[in-house]
Every structure is written in C-alpha cells, then in structure tokens.
Design a binder for these strands. Structure first.
Lengths: 350, 350
DNA sequence: AAATTAAATGTAATCGATTACACGAAACTA
DNA sequence: TAGTTTCGTGTAATCGATTACATTTAATTT
C-alpha cells in the first residue's frame, strides 16, 4: 500500500511501455483513445501520483519559489506572504519561506541555498544590513526571476513592487495640515532606507505645498519601535514650541509617542494629532484608535507574485517592472479634532 | 557563466569519471588524497553547486517539510512558523508554507500536493472544519513524519505539540479568584475544539478548587473575534447579578468585552477583571494592558520541529510523542485590583 | 496487389548524483 | 615468484518522468 507507484508499474501491469503511459497521462495526441482511457483508469486504480521531483529534474523547473523576508512573524511580512501564497498556489507553485533576521550573511546563504534547490524564482525584501549585491546577480545570471517587494536593492533589470511611500508621507502630512495643524513633527526611520527617505520627502512636499516652512528641529530619526517613540516624544518636549502634530513613519513609534505625551498630560488629538504608518493591527484596537497609512500588504504580495508569473511566462524578454501601489490613509481618532459627535462617528474604524 | 556545472563537467575537465568526482566531493574514504584535493579545487574553480533535485530523486529525500496552517498572517501561526523555520533551516531543511483557510478540502488537497512533492515531513495545525482523517493516514502510510501543533486530530501514532490549555484556563481563573473575584464568567470558543474544551475544564477546576459553584449562566460560547466580545458582554449585562470577572478564551473577545463594558460605564479592573488568552501583541499595547495567557508560540514551533527531526532520525521506531508546553499567565492591568501605585508598578508589561 | 501514408507504440537517451560491483595495478605474503 | 590483499577508479544501474527517433501495424492510395 505504501510503495510508490510509478509509470513503470502501470506499464508493467498493462504490458506496455512507460513511454506510452507517460503520453497517455499527458494527453499526448498520438495515443489511441482506447489505451489512454485504459491507462487513466489503471492509474487511478493503482493510486498513481506523479513524482514532482523526477519531473523537476527532467524539466529543470521545481515549481518552488523562495520568499525571503527579515522575519516572518511580523504582520507586514506575513500578510505579504499570504498574498504571495494565495496567488501562486493555484498555479502549482509552492512557497519556500526563509528569514534573514536582517543579516546580510544569512541573506547570501539563503539565496545560494535556494538556487541549489533549483527554485523557479526568488521574491524578497532586502535585509536592512545588506550593502552588496553579488548574491542578487547570481540569481540573475541563472535567469531566475527576482522580484523585490517593499525594500529593494539598486540593481538594473530587476522588478520590484513597492508602495508609493512618498504619496503616503504626503497624504498623512496633508491630512494633518487639513486638521489645522502647522507645527508638524516627523519621526522617521533609518534614512539610508529608501522607504523612509520617500516618506520624509512626501512630508516635506506637503509642508511646502501648504506654505509651511520646514523646521529641522521637528524631525527625529530613530529606530522603529515603541521605546524610540518614548525617546522621540521626550526630544519634542524639550523644544520651545511644542508641535501640534506628529507624523511617524512607524506605528510602533507613533504609539510610543502617544504614550509619552499622555504621561505628560497632553491630550491626543486635541493638543497634538498623530498619524502612524503601516496600519498595524493594534492601531485599530486601541481605545484611541490610531490613524495610519495602510500599505496594502496582501495586495503587494499578490502583485509581486503576478510579476513573477509574468516573467516565467516570458523567459526571453527582460522585464524590469516597477509597480508602485497606492497607499491608503486611514483616518482614525488620533488625528481628528472633533467638535461634535456626529463627526466622530464618521471616523473610520477600518 | 550561467550554465549549470555538474559533476560530469568536472570529470571531463580532469579526465576522470563522474563517480570519482562524486566520491571525492563526499569525502568517500576510498579516494586518494591527491584526486580528492584536485577535485575539490576544480569544483571550487568551476563554481560547482550540488543539484539538490537530482539528489532528492536519488535519495528519496527532498529536504523540504510542509507546514500547513489556517492563515499565515496570524501572529499565533506566523510565530510558530518562525520557530519551525529557525530550527530546521540549520539542519538543511526548507519550509514550505501552505494555508487552508480553515477549509477541509484545501487541507486535503494541500497534503496530497505536498506528498507528490516528496516532502520529508508535514507539520500542521488542523483546520477548524476538518472532520475526516484519511488524508492524515495517507501521510502515515508513506512513513512520512506527521506532527500536529496546537490543533490536532484524534489519530493514533501521531505526535503533537500543544500547550496545556487546561493549565492555562486554570491559572487564569485561579488568578481572578486570587484577586478576590467570585462571580467569574467564561467566554469560550467552539467547544468542539479540544483547545477550548480544555480551557473550559481548567476554568471549572479552578472554581471547584476554590469552592465556587459553577454557574452555567456565566458561560458564553461564541466565535473568537471582537464583535463576539461585544455580544458576550451584552449577554452578561442582561444577568441579574453581573459577574465580577471574565476569563475569555480569546484576546480579541476579551477586547470586545472590555470595550462594551466601558461603554456601559463599567470600570476595568475595578468593577470587573478581565483575562484573555493568546498574548496577542495588541494586549500589551493598549492603554489598559490586558492580562493574557501566553502560548509560547516560537517555542511550540521549535519543539514541533525537534519532534520531526527525531522521527526522521529514527525512521524504524514508531514514535508517538505528545509534548505539552506550559503556558504562562501574564498578569497585566486588566485583572489587577490595585489600591496603591506601588503595586501597580509591579504589574508585568511583558 | 504493391506502394505510400498515417497512426500507435516501442527504444533509448536525458536530467544529475550516488553506489554496488568489477577490474587493474601496486604492495604484500609465503 | 606466484598468490593474495589492498587501493583507487571505472562501469553501469538507479531514482521517475519525458521525448526525439525508430519501428511496427493498419489504412489508404494508385
């Protein structure tokens, strides 16, 4: 019962050759209807299952794609992976998950391992530490589709799917301006990363458009966790003139800012409006829900998968697709100065 | 540059046979030191990389394990997967991720697909809908290690890693009793699932131990989301005597309960103490942090991976290992009746 | 009826690595 | 020196499926 059934077993049983069996199973037109049906029936009877590994060796296609992220248990990444998986599974691909822990060495090793495992594609978000790109070039040399999502490396000929971080930063800041705020602080992540630079640029552009002078004192660069939010808030509290709004490039930092401000008796959003970034699940569970910029993560995964599929379909054509998804500002309680309850009810809880 | 180098290429270059090359690369003792070094050197020069697919076909081992969960973008599951990945990657295994969306049909299809792909093991959490178990038996027939985590099927000869849900329920309830509560409500998930039954039993045991009569009116069975928490709270509000504590089998439901109670002017934890289950990230981000039972997810993944490794190491021995991890009650603000600030500071924020 | 064509199946190579068995040469024993 | 080990390599089968090419048989044409 447990031995594996191969096409040779079917062939032996029917006193024909494995080639005929293979052809019958693959609906090859040069097979007679009679034998085809017989083979199909026998295959079902014997509970034959095609051995994908043998197929992979013969065809050079493993039907596996590698997905590399810093950590899989971060909502942002796991949602992207969900999108990728849901798009690729119906097409017969399996998703192999790997984590880099933000270490370049692990990233390099992982890519080489995936290449040895003959994956048909690599979809990834570059680790923060990564500075070199030979490992990416090794993927390209083998003509294996490489698609970056969210964080990409500067590399010609590689497709990427990102959100328009500039737009996200712009929208968030514009919204704060629309709320009547004019002293808007910005807490950004490591500006070596493109995503944080872009959000920062969007912030500045919105200020400029509104004729608000850019004030360097209002910009604080930190890590993207809650503690850094506490730190940032304290820095802001030292200023002569307190800002009346904060746009943070991270939800966790936004939370830290809110916590620290509350400790100091500052009312959110009455005294200071706050907008975060990423639409982390907790932002809508808070008593005071936090406005945030949604990065349409599932969609990002789906699109990355589709870009990959396009590339395997047209192996000859060198596609360099740069898809930029539009982020979605979700206005919640932390950034809306309301005067009456009617308005409050309109605040999105999504 | 991009053609794949095989052992035949190395053999041709050195005018020896592929067999010798293979032996040299595998440190086979019957190879002369001279040829071995020569082969190793040449392999490096030619940038040879072993083709894992060919190896998989020959050996019958793919070095891939399938991990099946309902949804990967749930903190609980993605953390387990992280644990699994981190344990298996160093041992040369790749983790293939699949989602069932809680559908039995998808689960069946996924398992069959993984078997065709010749995975060396299947680690999974059973979908809520699943009632049959032929698909699990198909895995066992092929002598492929099957390990359940968290949610398991009733099946002989299969290992599982769970937490002691009974203990978790007991600890949570005991803690509420220790806070002076005696009218303790319980909001549970679908009692067809073992995990919810066990938590419920733990709850009842703690009551019994404290000599508190079990009151059916205080038990509400719902789904595990925030809205169900609203519903449950409303049901409790209808009672003649309001409970003075709530132990919820889900953090999301606990959150809903808290929200609804607050709407009705009930103070948490002064009037009613609340403890949730799962230690979802948001529980510690709230203004009012929520006490919860941590399920040591990363550890669960690691242990599941180790159980799998043990089974591949001893293929002959039929191991049926039932590992039960001990959950950890995290006492936070939602369940501690404090009188002075000193005590409040001791409340865990972990 | 002989010749041509078409249809169905068989033969054998291939994908890349491993390994039982065979074989020749060197080294050792008696 | 003939016989036996030992050592290092080569030969060829194997894992399971696919497919170009060859071959057989049947059907069609002239």
């Amino acid at each position: 019962m447990n031995e594996k059934i191969t096409i040779y077993d079917i062939a032996k049983r029917l006193k024909i050759t494995a080639a005929t069996v293979s052809r019958a199973l693959n609906n090859n037109p040069k097979i007679s209807e009679a034998t085809r049906l017989l083979v199909l029936k026998t295959a079902k009877e014997m509970n034959y299952k095609q051995n994908k590994v043998a197929l992979a060796l013969k065809s050079g296609k493993s039907n596996n794609v590698g997905v590399i992220v810093p950590y899989i248990n971060r909502n942002f990444f796991s949602s992207i992976i969900r999108g990728i998986e849901e798009e690729l599974y119906p097409k017969g691909y399996h998703v192999i998950i790997c984590q880099t822990h933000e270490e370049e060495q692990k990233e390099i090793k992982t890519i080489d391992n995936l290449l040895n495992a003959q994956v048909d594609g690599v979809l990834m978000s570059v680790s923060k530490q990564t500075t070199t790109s030979e490992h990416f070039e090794r993927v390209l040399e083998k003509h294996i589709p490489l698609v970056f999502f969210d964080r990409r490396a500067q590399l010609k000929g590689v497709s990427s799917v990102t959100i328009d971080d500039y737009q996200g930063g712009f929208d968030a800041t514009k919204h704060l301006i629309d709320q009547g705020c004019s002293r808007i602080a910005h807490i950004c992540g490591d500006l070596k990363l493109e995503i944080y630079r872009d959000r920062f640029e969007g912030y500045k552009a919105a200020l400029k458009q509104a004729g608000i002078a850019y004030n360097e004192d209002y910009v604080i660069q930190t890590k993207s966790d809650t503690e850094s939010g506490h730190f940032a808030a304290q820095e802001l509290l030292k200023l002569d003139k307190l800002p009346d709004a904060v746009f943070s490039s991270s939800d966790h930092t936004a939370l830290g800012v809110i916590q620290k401000f509350k400790e100091h008796g500052i009312k959110i959003p009455k005294d200071i409006c706050v907008v975060g970034f990423s639409n982390e699940p907790f932002t809508k569970f808070m008593e005071l829900t936090i406005s945030s910029v949604d990065q349409c993560t599932m969609e990002m995964g789906r699109v990355a998968a589709r870009v990959f599929l396009e590339q395997v379909k047209n192996p000859k054509i060198k596609i360099e697709k740069k898809v930029e998804l539009t982020p979605q500002l979700l206005v919640r309680e932390s950034s809306v100065k309301v005067n009456d309850t009617t308005k409050k009810l309109r605040v999105s809880k999504g």
